[in-house]
Design a binder for these strands. Structure first.
Lengths: 130, 130
DNA sequence: TCGAACCATCACATAGATGTGAAGGTCAAA
DNA sequence: TTTGACCTTCACATCTATGTGATGGTTCGA
């Protein structure tokens, strides 16, 4: 598939698909005429990249962890250097931290919304609703 | 407390404390001489802000949700406009999405690390370890 | 063969969070 | 009273992810 189709299927501007390639997050092949050629797997991959970016990870880190997330699980021992493992452990920590922070705040927002809803919509009739 | 102490206690550059103020995330009072004067509660608040920023929320959004997260829980009905509630619902969605994405990828990294550890450290002696 | 709709590269612009430094005021201790 | 460690504002720089547009090649259907 060419860049236009991938862009549409992932809801990602072409510009960014090229940018992710420049950052070496995705490496499409090229057709004879120079057009980028993406295979089916890039759809999920791009969605995953965008999710991680949105969650605050920089491309530099995403580039490092992506190869470890491939399924079927294949361990690229070339990548599994001690430094790489340390990086991953570090990122794991940071991600756990982020998750905890987001969860805490999400719960607080949820609680707030519930309190507001209860005070604003006291459902005066039909008390035994549901 | 003045900006230097807050900076040290939260591990945040002074520059950023001023920036958060400019973005109206924190509003310290001023001493007679013009120095910013932070009370104890700003410590937690700043840590919370940094956590949210790190998790990918922009200051614009953080500014909106912070007042809803105050404890003890106080509903500022001035803030509870329909638009505000819609914003919160939207942010809630986005946060859930982020959490799901981070969790999924964190689990994948964790699994990867476990597989690598098993293959690299087969603990040759003491087979019945633990 | 022409035009529309793709594609390519390149370059410059923007927005948000952050770094850095200049120029100067305040204050306490030596 | 001077020095050093704070503080102030202001301004410009940087990095990352993104927007936007110029310029030109390819392909395909009318």
């Amino acid at each position: 598939m060419r860049i236009g189709e991938l862009a549409e299927r992932t809801g990602t501007p072409r510009r960014l698909l090229r940018y992710y390639e420049e950052q070496e997050l995705i490496m499409p092949t090229r057709c004879a005429n120079g057009y980028r050629d993406y295979d089916e797997r890039f759809v999920d991959r791009v969605v995953q990249i965008r999710g991680l970016l949105d969650a605050g990870l920089p491309t530099r880190i995403i580039k490092q962890i992506l190869p470890c997330l491939d399924k079927p699980r294949v361990i690229h021992f070339k990548d599994a250097t001690p430094e790489m493992l340390a990086t991953l452990e570090g990122e794991l920590d940071r991600m756990n931290h982020r998750i905890a922070c987001l969860t805490r705040n999400r719960d607080a927002i949820e609680e707030y919304l519930e309190v507001v809803r209860r005070s604003k919509a006291p459902e005066p009739s039909a008390p035994g609703g549901r």
